[in-house]
């Protein structure tokens, strides 16, 4: 599935669901939550996370708990607000799509 344009909000949503996490755990979380629908090139997540951090939507720090140094990402309040706005937009968008495409699809089935 082409995730261009949606990756940022998906990452924010996954961070909101699973809490602070490093990049690998985020990808696993995203894959599991989407039932494998969002199986993206894993490397693309890191530039997206860095971009979100530059925008102030996530914050990160090195963790020394693991055997290797890991960068742990967490949502900021600005990220939470942005996610809340995106969720509201998505609900409107999904309802609109459902009323146009979903109804026709159901009629086709009937």
């Amino acid at each position: 599935m082409d995730l261009r344009g949606h990756l940022d909000v998906l990452l924010l949503g996954t961070l909101d669901q699973i809490g602070p996490a490093h990049g690998y755990a985020l990808i696993i979380g995203l894959r599991e939550q989407s039932d494998g629908a969002f199986d993206l090139p894993e490397g693309s997540v890191y530039p997206a996370l860095h971009r979100l951090e530059r925008g102030g939507f996530v914050a990160s720090e090195w963790s020394t708990d693991a055997p290797r140094r890991r960068r742990i990402y967490r949502l900021t309040s600005q990220g939470r607000e942005a996610l809340s706005t995106k969720r509201a937009e998505w609900r409107i968008f999904a309802a609109g799509m459902q009323s146009v495409i979903g109804r026709r699809a159901m009629e086709g089935l009937a």
């Binding site: 490397g43 860095h50 960068r71």
Partner: peptide, 17 residues
């Protein structure tokens, strides 16, 4: 520093995978 950080994250990711 961005490059160093990306490389460290990539190595951690690949070793975990």
């Amino acid at each position: 520093s961005n490059g160093r950080r990306t490389l460290a994250e990539t190595e951690d990711h690949l070793r975990a995978a």
